[in-house]
Design a protein around this nucleic acid. Structure first.
Lengths: 112, 112
DNA sequence: CTTGCATACATAATGGCATTAGGTATATAA
DNA sequence: TTATATACCTAATGCCATTATGTATGCAAG
């Protein structure tokens, strides 16, 4: 189980990253996250949809209802230009924190 | 600026990691975090102290008031055995999420 | 000698956001 | 026809960083 805080920190970059590969819809995103994480991240739909709505409100993603070939209605999300920039910012943030942790986790961490 | 969510996700592992190098006190931890992160992480004391209290309540760290050589009272925190285990668990969690993100950030990410 | 800054700890109020639990609807396989 | 997978939505709850505020000491500048 991944802690609540870590889930909170990773949902946004993960969703934006997935949408960078092309439009996608909620239900599929959940499956994709599960697969990519090797089953470690199992998002609930009740968790995902509010995040998608917030990302759209912030104009990082846009949505469009479509009927798939199977004849099912789906809400497809697409990354906006603003969303691409936001993803880059998120990536930088994540990496800088990760590097700080990596330093601390080295066999002989630097003392101040 | 690091997002609130990412700060929330990293405070606990960072504090536990710092205390793995020996006992330390609040004010010093803030400086250490700033230095290690290259100035990217600037914790406020109002943020740190409640975290320390919570970690102590959860028995991941213990505290002891001491008078330093300079004659100042300081509350020194030390990692408990439970805290060491918790740190290992936090480390694993972080790394698994990081690896999921790394996959998504590869030049040609795997499609599902 | 007092004024300001760094050191050092603490807590109350606020707001953001994952979690949980509920709800609706369709397609398909048993 | 009944269960399961698909596909979306939202309200209530609780955790926790943030912000603001308070207390106290040591030291250097003027």
């Amino acid at each position: 189980m991944i802690s609540k805080a870590l889930v909170a920190a990773s949902t946004k970059p993960i969703i934006l990253s997935i949408l960078l590969n092309g439009e996608n819809y909620g239900y599929k995103i959940i499956q994709r996250v599960k697969k990519i994480s090797g089953g470690i991240l199992e998002w609930s739909d009740g968790m995902l949809y509010p995040v998608l709505h917030r990302l759209q409100k912030d104009e990082f993603i846009s949505s469009q209802w479509k009927i798939s070939e199977e004849g099912r209605y789906r809400k497809y999300y697409r990354l906006t230009d603003l969303g691409k920039k936001e993803l880059e910012a998120e990536k930088k943030q994540w990496m800088s924190v990760h590097e700080a942790l990596a330093k601390l986790w080295k066999p002989s961490p630097a003392f101040d």
